[in-house]
Design a protein around this nucleic acid. Sequence first.
DNA 1: AACAAAAAATGAACCGGTTCATATTTATTT
DNA 2: AAATAAATATGAACCGGTTCATTTTTTGTT
Lengths: 331, 331
Amino acid sequence: MATIRDVAKEAGLSTGTISKALSTPERVSKKNLEKIQAAIKKLNYKPNMLAQKFRAKSSKTIVVLVPDIANQFFASVISGIELVAQNKGFSVLLGDTRDSAVREREFVRMVETKLADGIINLRPYKKQDAILPRDDILAVSASSCEGTPSYSVRIDNVGAAKKAVGHLISLGHKRIGVISGLQDNPHNIDRLNGYKAALSAANIDYDPTLVIAGDFNYWSGLTAAEQFSSMKQRPTAIFSMNDEMAIAAIRGFKDKGINMPQDMSIIGFDDMEVSRYCIPTLSTISQPAEKIGQKSAELLLQLIEGSKPETEEYILPYEFVIRESIAPPRA
Amino acid sequence: MATIRDVAKEAGLSTGTISKALSTPERVSKKNLEKIQAAIKKLNYKPNMLAQKFRAKSSKTIVVLVPDIANQFFASVISGIELVAQNKGFSVLLGDTRDSAVREREFVRMVETKLADGIINLRPYKKQDAILPRDDILAVSASSCEGTPSYSVRIDNVGAAKKAVGHLISLGHKRIGVISGLQDNPHNIDRLNGYKAALSAANIDYDPTLVIAGDFNYWSGLTAAEQFSSMKQRPTAIFSMNDEMAIAAIRGFKDKGINMPQDMSIIGFDDMEVSRYCIPTLSTISQPAEKIGQKSAELLLQLIEGSKPETEEYILPYEFVIRESIAPPRA
DNA sequence: AACAAAAAATGAACCGGTTCATATTTATTT
DNA sequence: AAATAAATATGAACCGGTTCATTTTTTGTT
């Protein structure tokens, strides 16, 4: 494999000139530039980026910690991150942590050992087992929750949930069920707080039996729907903490002969692509996933460049999308 | 940031000894080992892996090219790859190519410039725009199709399709519809060949009007179901080239009041998780996704280590999973 | 205690880029 | 044509590890 010294010899010039020709060609004489290009071509020279990065003491790489890559929402966030990173000449290393702290630590190690310059964490922050933030590691938390103690980018989960549930209340619903995510998931907590806030604003008492815990996956939404169906006094509307469970619930209610939206209104969260196609089409909270990714990347790159962003917390606008799945309750 | 020389000075030893203490501690005297560990701790020394990799002239990294990371099947394959790579001390760089040749080329460039040692390509090979294989780049094709001209790991797509369709025929079906993937997708072609083979084995003529082209996404399965429903002589069974479209089709047929499996049998491909939960549960071809990933990684690492695997093509066993979605046609 | 053999430690050289103080060439001015 | 200024080119030193031929220390043997 040809090195820069081989090119220098071939072109009859010094290594310094070759280096400059590659980084700032306008500062090399035309005549020599041609010689250099010819030599590069002849030797099929490709600069060794390991050497470059080593010298520069910067890997120009950021790690994105993802709890689960097979997830539409995360994929969109990542897409936004990559867009910005690419523009600034950074590579993106996807760390599929599969919710394992061990794997997470391994990726953090990459920053410690210079293999990466910083981290974007898509896993919501939990106090108990947080490996980040650490003051020796540049990191940004994307799609985080209230009270995340580091640079973070997110939507107002509490407000979004409150808005969605508030809308159901304004339609006349009084008994509103919740399909929540995993017990200790922080998003869950924020969204549940929003739900409670909407109830109390309307002077409706909070009834914990109307909250059924799921796990953000399809199957749990189906079970939840069955449980709601068999209640003696079943709710007239459901707020599901993600679209996947909401869509499963639609299926579950249909199987029980419950008509939507006449007998049951449903609202999801995330605005997955399918939500536009299911029957009835699903009302939901749309998160600006790609924007969240972009903003996170911008923040992290700013940190890497050494400047201090003005704000620690960036809260992006969400959108409440009303589709066919909601209606006033039957009189 | 402390370097190995700082540690050497602190411990009163030479850099060579420190280096050895880190790689082969059993070859360093106990007394010095303790001194070294103390020094490392005191200085909070972390070896610079960029320097290590540069010296070793190997990044110990493999790139996995994925057309779309938000896809269950790919996620499982990747999971298998990571398992093997981790064991051998390799990192995995996920290249989400989003089906763009430009982005693909960029990742290939990482191998050219030593940022990665090899590539696993999850994108099925097409002659027209293939960037791989290239004889200067170590690469393995995972989940490939017949005739992929490089090291490859896959199932027998033709055989699997033939088996599934053959089973439908053995149940008595004669008019069997197909929901295919994108026109020029190579998996598509293999699976369609299997379909044709099953027909001809039973002396049933191939009727191209029974093949409706989808794009592997939910929406296209729904449309296909509508088209099949409105045929004057509609098929009694459907072979869908992935589960996502099959599940959409189930939904589509239900909306048209067609009962499954009595009036319509459906078989999918991939065995997604949801396929166990939809109603009726979906019969499908189960691919050993994780195993495909493992085998691909083993192959690539073998290539990187410099040895030549015996076989170029590894064909792994699939499984035909029979669930509720199929039955004999009505008499 | 003397010597040989084995084990451990040394430190300069190396990997392939980039940098920068210095030298050389080219262009401009008088 | 000479003097000065500007533009280019040079090449040794450097980044932080690892390697290995050589030296030093320890261990074992007689």
